[in-house]
Design a binder for these strands. Sequence first.
DNA 1: GGACAGGTGCGGT
DNA 2: ACCGCACCTGTC
Length: 277
Amino acid sequence: MIQILKDKIIINSLNFVAKDIFECGQIFRYKKISSGYICYSLDKSAIIEEIEGKTIISCKDVDYFYKYFDLDTDYNVITNKLSKDMFMAKAVDFGRGIRILRQDLFETIISFIISANNNISRIQKIIENICKAFGSVTEFGYAFPTQKQLLKATASDFKELGCGYRAEYLFKTLRLIDDQFERELKILPTELARKKLLNLVGVGNKVADCILLFGLGRLNTFPCDVWIKKVYHEYFEQGHKDNQISNFFVNYFGELSGYAQQYLFYFQRSGEFFQKV
DNA sequence: GGACAGGTGCGGT
DNA sequence: ACCGCACCTGTC
């Protein structure tokens, strides 16, 4: 099913669809190209193309992207379990190729602080600006800056790069985190890790859950944004207050919560696109 | 001009 | 603890 070469990973599976993976809301550093997608993580990049029904991932660091795309996880098991719920079956069918990426923790923290009350194209632009201004030069462009590099930025630097009022959040949070902070987060149980994340400036419940899910691989979380609220009120309504919706879904989906969130989010949002086009 | 976008911090109860 | 509100900025 999966073939690993020196600078390529070849995947022969229906459970890997680049469009679904990159456009389901979990990542901002990717670009659509004529032959597929190119994505960036830290100082690395990979090209993802469909050739003769197979997915080819071309990159220098095969080990890194094998983990990044979480290729050891069998999504057949996940989609089969989730599809037992009638409504989920539709969402899973729509986003069959989704995989939750194993993103870098630091990059995830910074990126999702920027994402708060913001739209994707602007988030992408801001992150790109920050990479250009503070990241190292790579063969493809600019790397995501390290914490050390970002500590050189002032709040007004961030503002000039388009962050708006999130500039202060970034400036302050950068002074609250370090390697030790990240090491502790990685070993703490989900609830305690969430509490620790909520101490950061610009990190509320939603952003904390995104960091837990995308940066720490905690699948027992369910980030709740406006789209998920719509899903709840349209299809799962049971009288919960908005700030209890995430808990409701975690109870409902258990260890599959993170996956379920991605399928539901992507599905709900696609409806909006169809209506607009 | 005004509302809204993948929320959060803050001040007032 | 639980409200309500202001907030950068681009786009409709």
